[in-house]
Amino acid sequence: MPPKEPTLTRPLRRSFVKGLLGSTSFWMVSGHSHWADALAQEAQKPYQPTFFTPDEYRFLEAATERLFPQDQHGSGARALGVAEFIDRQMESPYGHGDNWYMSAPFVQGPANLGYQLPFVPRDLYRKGIAGLEAYTHQQHGKVFADLPLSAQEQILTALEGGSVPLGDIPGRVFFEQLRTNTMEGAFSDPLYGGNKGLGGWLMLGFPGARADFMDWVNQDGEAYPFGPISISGETA
């Protein structure tokens, strides 16, 4: 087992804090306990989605938790804030497909020639969730989030395998979008709303923004001894 990591506090830099708050003075004079309290308070308020409707958001929370469940290995998608992450991403340039080539005509071809739909991530989620809920209702007479976990897993397995029709969108395409964004939400810097408490990084032993390993280039297979730190200076 790796040695238990020491609790580290480090001076917060101006640049750490600017990205988070837009005001530096409060954090510069605050001690670590204030910081942690503020984060904890923030964490208690349930996140209000901006892009997703409440029903869509319930689906997203349930589906991402199945893809990345709470278990003996550590936090699941719900505890990590994966749905919040995805909602925030929908409002970012990425959600609008800002660096995708989106010129017509849109011609479908072999899968190995890549994505050819006229939809950006926001469209994929709106249409994908609607399609999957319609399928779920038809099969089970309920919404996805109200199904037993085993039924949810069956639906996601079918979606991954390509046997769930979603109208305009091939089921596999929606599955891959959801899976990719789930993993991003579990493991990106907490700046973006996911990886809460650095739970994703703790699971993997990834030390986050430390970015200086001069003393651990080769320690003959010993685990790196320090826990993660985020860009904003949060430690686990």
Partner: peptide
């Protein structure tokens, strides 16, 4: 930034090449 310019790709001469969108 592919939104401005990209390439199209196909495997063989008899196929229609499709845009590399992502």
């Amino acid at each position: 930034n592919l939104s401005q310019t990209t390439v199209t790709v196909r495997n063989t001469i008899d196929q229609t090449a499709l845009p590399y969108r992502q």
